[in-house]
């Protein structure tokens, strides 16, 4: 189970990333977050954000037009 969830469906770039940034700031190291988005931009944006910020991508999958990401806070 993940600690936090963000439903960014219906949001366009850069709002999923803005929401992700805000939420991650409130979390403790080691906690996990699941983000679901349907903006195709998220497919590249979220991994780019994760690698830049040094957090860890635990899981990434696509399901019926939705993109799921599970991220662990460093």
């Amino acid at each position: 189970m993940v600690d936090e969830k963000i439903d960014a469906q219906g949001m366009m770039c850069p709002m999923p990333i803005v929401q992700l940034t805000k939420k991650m700031k409130t979390m403790s190291p080691g906690q996990t977050l699941e983000l679901v988005a349907d903006d195709v931009g998220a497919l590249e944006d979220v991994p780019a954000w994760v690698s830049r910020t040094g957090n860890e991508m635990l899981e990434q999958r696509q399901e019926s037009g939705k993109y799921y990401f599970v991220i662990k806070k460093k």
């Binding site: 770039c13 803005v18 940034t21 830049r52 910020t53 040094g54």
Partner: peptide
């Protein structure tokens, strides 16, 4: 503001 917030969010 899009570029600014995103860049800040990326550290």
């Amino acid at each position: 503001v899009f570029l600014g917030t995103t860049a800040a969010g990326m550290g």
